[in-house]
Simulated scan of single mutants.
Amino acid sequence: MTRTITQAELRNGSAGVMDALESGDDFIITRNGRPVGELRPVHQPRDVVTLNLKARLARFVGAGTAAEERAEIDDAFGVERLGD
């Protein structure tokens, strides 16, 4: 959930903002009523065992077009895009 907060709210309520970030919330920070920045939780890379990853990827060998291959991979692993 994206919340908009002021610079003062960030300064005075930083502990609450940090708790919300850990819960997955993100923020737009404003100064004098104008958006000046974003705060988002850091997405930690998942630990993947190489052998398991190779087995999961093996089924994609020989897929049709690049778009079909991407769709299959997105279905299997989920879609994560930066900047969304």
Results as ranks from 00 to 15, higher is better:
1 M>H: 10
1 M>A: 14
2 T>L: 15
2 T>A: 14
2 T>F: 13
3 R>M: 12
4 T>P: 07
5 I>M: 10
8 A>E: 14
9 E>G: 07
10 L>R: 14
10 L>W: 12
11 R>G: 01
12 N>W: 05
12 N>P: 00
12 N>M: 05
14 S>Q: 09
15 A>M: 07
18 M>Y: 08
18 M>N: 06
18 M>D: 09
20 A>K: 03
21 L>V: 09
23 S>L: 13
23 S>D: 13
24 G>D: 02
24 G>Y: 03
26 D>R: 15
26 D>W: 08
28 I>V: 15
34 R>L: 05
35 P>Q: 07
36 V>S: 06
36 V>D: 02
41 P>C: 04
41 P>V: 04
42 V>M: 11
43 H>K: 07
48 V>W: 07
51 L>S: 12
51 L>Y: 01
52 N>P: 00
53 L>K: 01
54 K>V: 07
54 K>N: 07
54 K>E: 10
55 A>C: 03
57 L>Q: 08
58 A>P: 00
61 V>Q: 10
61 V>G: 02
61 V>M: 04
63 A>T: 12
64 G>S: 15
64 G>Y: 01
64 G>E: 15
64 G>A: 15
65 T>W: 02
66 A>T: 12
68 E>H: 06
73 I>M: 13
74 D>G: 04
78 G>Y: 06
78 G>C: 06
79 V>W: 00
80 E>S: 05
83 G>P: 00
84 D>C: 03
